[in-house]
Design a protein around this nucleic acid. Sequence first.
RNA 1: GCCGCGGUGGUGGAACGGUAGACACGGCGGACUCAAAAUCCGCUGCCGGAAACGGUGUGAGGGUUCGAAUCCCUCCCGCGGUACCA
Length: 857
Amino acid sequence: MSERRYEAREIEAKWQAVWAAEGTWEVSNRPGQEGAGQRSHSPDGARHDKSYVLEMLPYPSGEPHIGHMKNYAIGDAIAHFRRRTGHRVLHPMGYDSFGLPAENNAIKTGVHPRAATEQSIAAFQKAFRSWGVSIDWSREIASHEPEYYRWTQWIFLQLYRRGLAYRKESAVNWCPNDQTVLANEQVVDGRCERCGHEVELRQLEQWFFRITDYADRLLDDLDRIDWPEHVKTMQRNWIGRSVGAEVNFTCAELGIDYPVFTTRPDTLFGATFFVMAPEHPDIFKLAAGTANEQAVHAYVNHALAESAEDRGDIEKTKTGVFLGRTITNPVTGEEIPMYVADYVLMEYGTGAIMAVPAHDERDFAFAMAYGLQIRQVVAPRDGSEIPAGEAYVTKADDAILVNSGEFNGLTPKTGFDRIVHWLDMEGIGHPSVNFRLRDWLVSRQRYWGCPIPIVYCDEHGMVPVPEDQLPVELPDVQDYQPKGRSPLATAEDWVNTTCPECGGPARRETDTMDTFVDSSWYFLRYCDAHNDDAAWDPAVLREWMGVDQYIGGVEHAILHLLYARFFVKALADMDLLDVQEPFNALFTQGMILGPDGQKMSKSRGNVIPPTPLIEKFGADSVRTYILNMGPPDQDAAWNDNALAGAHRLLSRLWTLGEEMGSDVSGGVTGPLATQEDATGPLAGGDEAVTQPADPTGDALTLVRKANWAIDRVTSEFVGRFGFHNAIAAVTELVNDLYRFPEAEAGARRFAVATAASLIFPFAPHVGAEAFEMVTGRRAWEEPWPAADPAMLVADSFELVCQVNGKVRDRVQAPSGASREQLQELALAAPGIVAHLEGHEVVKLIVVPDKLVNIVVR
RNA sequence: GCCGCGGUGGUGGAACGGUAGACACGGCGGACUCAAAAUCCGCUGCCGGAAACGGUGUGAGGGUUCGAAUCCCUCCCGCGGUACCA
């Protein structure tokens, strides 16, 4: 045993210096001009495939936390694997550097958000380098820099030109604490996603992106991407496509038509009343002059004052007020009463519904509360009674329509089609599809964001800033405190400008963009990060897009991932890029919980800061531990002891490498078969290690184990990224090396080199170090090892002998033995013989190379 | 309520319908050491047994199968998403 010990800090500093000096992970937009880490490993010397591996870009605040480390540990492992399997890998880094926390910090401390953000970016850069993440630093971007947001503004203008960015007044979510509007997606349970404050509705004019134009495509294309099913489901639910019909109801007294959307046109004959949302603009007109006018005013005022949370409470009893009017059911011709009730939402459909109490739970509850008529129009086919006291909600084939005139006897599905067709013929309705998805509200009344490149001229109204005048730079202000309008409004010199059309006086738009706009296209900019003439060269995008593997937290399942998809589709429609989807494959990592199993938070005091751990154990150990915690898509609680276990593994591997390195005697049998050149600075005294030709005994065991490990690790990279299983395989290999210290040296060298090579994607520094000690070569310049199929099968195996499905013995049997041979072996096994006594053999099941099951009576 | 995902030792977790518990942590024992740490080796689901071995065991209950953690049905529990969306 050597006197020297595994000193992670030294080793990590050494390799980080090499990678920084050589620009190892840089990749050119022109193949063939890559860093050394991108050297070709395919037999003909050309890299055929690109691979774009991307972790969600971080929001730079303070220092990176342990969750960032998990994110980049996963992504980096994949990037390394893909490089070594012949891909040109794009693995860039950047910062989502606009946003509220920096601004709120500025309000508190007076420190300019730019200063705080740039300080934080420096901390992130330092951390990523100390973690040894294989980043192409030449493509680094930050969304708060004018070189970046110039193009965010440019994209805004492209959307504006095509009518996809527009201003409108509507009821929007307002956070009284953050003093800004929020997108629908940023309201969680009626509260601001960021600060948790209850959200109010305000009638305001705001900027929107017309994401609803893309609802169908955003939904349909989910089928074409390799994403976790639960994320796709969340997006489907968010988009919320409902197929139904629009049906026209006419209020004869006032001569006004009120269309409604329904998913159940088959129940139209059961519509016995009509309900409108309190926000519906015609409410007061309808109630005017009726006996109920006062009551309606009182109800509407009360409803509008209610918080979103209270109003949304499904347990709340239904309330409403008769409008004093009736409306005609277009199929029955009946006059049915009109109500205003807060269970109808203005935002969805037309803000008015036909109520079918017999077959809708909400309408049923309302009808019961107000004693309204309930008419059953769907009945069980077999004539059985429907349950009393609840609505009968079914579209199934075992039900038929009743009380529905000429449509009686049809199933609900057929009735749906026939009634919609009939409505269409009569001109009182038509098929219709409704979405839950709303347009994306993108303006914010805050400072630290991308300015919206629009000016307002008395003469010409809203005028886009000409593209050659971009960027509209964010000015400095004295006071960041939000006062219901953007702090930018106080920068008078900046606000007052001239109209691009007429040169007359004009004022700049003072709202900034939602930071989700910045992060909806950053993955495009990475491809052509320093292009000063355009956001990107479409030819370069053709080379790199889409992202082959995207890695991030599930918390972005709806917001970021939906917005980015929308951007890509809109830009593709402008012929600015060629793909329809930004992220072909998505991996959602689980959270690292505190040692107490709770979500880490300062208030709980269970936060694990990465830096002290890295100083003590090294980045490799922390990365390896994080990936060894369990399936990486699952949440897992931190455990310091298990981290020490990961360190032990790397230390044992390093020790083996050290031993091999100092033992220059035997085992060197020539260059690796697939290796074509080795022109690094270390190439001189090259000692490639290859699999020994005909190992026997312990050497054979080691060689087999090494090949088995190659196969295991490789399959996790190709499959589900179960890196805990990959690391376990390397652990077994290392354990076997300790178990068989006397094995022939060539086999040991091969096994150690293999372990180092396989651990490299997870623990790149010690992987590189151990690999170099054994082989004199650089692990990242080596092709990924291929398992020797001959070494994956043994010449004998342990035959499992069962009686009635219970294991009674195990005997050695030759691989590939015939059924008859195996039967014979099993029947002769001592444990079997004992259990056969006094029983009659009924059946013999033989699974070749595995087991024999003897069924007895 | 609806949708999705889960439930396996003391813990994290392994296991194409074919040896349940790989690997790691923890625990116990041993080697080394004056001693401790570090390191190395062994044992470790539960019950019985000195051991051989036997029984039992993957949330509960049924079913399919020669054989079920795995497939099917019913139920219980946990997590995540979503919810007057007509």
